Measured scan of single mutants.
Amino acid sequence: MPSETPQAEVGPTGCPHRSGPHSAKGSLEKGSPEDKEAKEPLWIRPDAPSRCTWQLGRPASESPHHHTAPAKSPKILPDILKKIGDTPMVRINKIGKKFGLKCELLAKCEFFNAGGSVKDRISLRMIEDAERDGTLKPGDTIIEPTSGNTGIGLALAAAVRGYRCIIVMPEKMSSEKVDVLRALGAEIVRTPTNARFDSPESHVGVAWRLKNEIPNSHILDQYRNASNPLAHYDTTADEILQQCDGKLDMLVASVGTGGTITGIARKLKEKCPGCRIIGVDPEGSILAEPEELNQTEQTTYEVEGIGYDFIPTVLDRTVVDKWFKSNDEEAFTFARMLIAQEGLLCGGSAGSTVAVAVKAAQELQEGQRCVVILPDSVRNYMTKFLSDRWMLQKGFLKEEDLTEKKPWWWHLRVQELGLSAPLTVLPTITCGHTIEILREKGFDQAPVVDEAGVILGMVTLGNMLSSLLAGKVQPSDQVGKVIYKQFKQIRLTDTLGRLSHILEMDHFALVV
């Protein structure tokens, strides 16, 4: 994948999101292997301009796509893939009243899908469409860049269908997702969380590099694949309309690839034109409109599966009536509230959605109805927002919020430890010299600072030695090549209790 991002070429006709291997024109390309080798690009942008032909009021008969309808489940399912879809609609009884809503608040519980998330729908649909058009064949390999849930859905379907599955996901995604993927037989590649989507090191860039190296491999490409919004247009939206008897006044959905909100909203605009569509985008993402909503100094966020630093091709923002931004604290607070007060075992993005819903639905009156999409299960986040310690460490809970008995030293300040200034190293000294210094002084790690004293990161003896043994660096290389740029900081005025929580999850903390 090139470091400079080429513009994806656009073909003359058809839909841009065809499933299957992508040609340089962004659509299915038939021909000899030699032709494909000559024409197939190194990668295709996940934010390529959409060429979708959908228009409100256009006859369904003019759609270029294969459409399906929700099917009634048999008493005995032939395999677990038949437990994807037909998820329950559940009334939220307490939270709406707590925040003064007059309307009825309903939750579409997508964590009841077989793999635990709304992404099971698009995973199965992308595979079925690729099999139907002859792209996927027995023994082929599926590769997908994902925040985890699409990966789980694909790995689940691949396990049943017999495909090899490789999932490329950023490091910030939970260990629970990784464990589930491994249990399903998927191979996992992790990428830096802070890598831009168009960087060769991003999950998108690495996935395309693997595709170019592995024979008979395919990126189904949830960011561009029409099967993504079509899955929701054909099934999720129809289920909502049936469950609500066609009567709903507002739908609120958090947005990642945009397939969920695009597919549902398009069908609702056709069948229930008075329904307002509300999009939820986390602070630090750029999906919301108008652009002024996205202006923030924050560039990272903890909530998973929603928000991006690019506009995915499948996201149709014209069908969203209003956007709201959400933050991590309210997302996790509301997710825990949904679990504790409503018994809905949902993930953090569901918290984002409901946090926005109780604001947006203030305009609705008694007798009206708001539906929220709860995308995934708490299963993926047992060591994250479900953990009091994690919430404390991230600053989303305060010590006084917890009532468990603490040891005698818990409320003492870090400054009472009488710490001395640490050994520091410059980023320009060599790895070999740094190892000598650390061994001589008896230290395992040291902060790396520039000549102005600005902290650049941390270097550890173990990481340097393993990097040297693996051949990633040489003793003569500058130590700046092996620094940890993500590390926890703590102030002298913070409590030892807070430091204790940090050290339970990290090997060190830097006192500043």
Rank of each mutant, 00 (worst) to 15 (best):
S217D: 01
G14S: 06
L251Y: 07
D120N: 06
C244H: 05
G246K: 09
Q242N: 15
K172F: 01
R190W: 05
E4M: 03
T135I: 04
K271F: 13
D86Q: 10
P200Y: 14
K75M: 13
G139R: 14
G26D: 12
I167V: 02
G100D: 15
S175Y: 13
A253E: 08
N228S: 04
R164Q: 04
T146V: 07
D234Y: 13
E62G: 11
K267F: 11
M126L: 14
S23I: 12
M89V: 10
T135G: 03
K119M: 03
P74C: 15
K247G: 07
F111D: 03
S123R: 06
P6S: 12
G256Q: 01
E110D: 06
A69I: 05
I76G: 07
G151D: 03
T13L: 10
A207R: 00
L181M: 07
S27Y: 08
M126A: 08
I219V: 08
C103T: 02
G139F: 12
A38P: 10
H67W: 05
I142F: 06
Q243K: 11
P78A: 11
I143P: 01
R121F: 02
T53E: 05
P170F: 03
T236P: 05
G20Y: 02
P41I: 10
E131C: 02
V252P: 07
K172D: 01
R51E: 09
L154S: 00
A159P: 04
Q55H: 15
G14T: 10
T257W: 00
T53Q: 06
A60D: 02
D238M: 10
A48Y: 09
S147C: 01
G153M: 00
P229V: 06
R161D: 05
S73R: 12
C52G: 02
R224M: 07
S3C: 10
A71Q: 12
A69W: 03
V189C: 07
H232C: 00
K119G: 02
L81Y: 04
N113H: 11
K97W: 03
L156Y: 02
I127M: 13
L154F: 05
I143F: 03
V255G: 07
P2M: 15
S174Q: 03
T260N: 04
E270Y: 09
E9K: 13
R266F: 08
Q55K: 13
L105Q: 01
F99M: 13
N93K: 09
P12R: 15
S63M: 09
K267P: 01
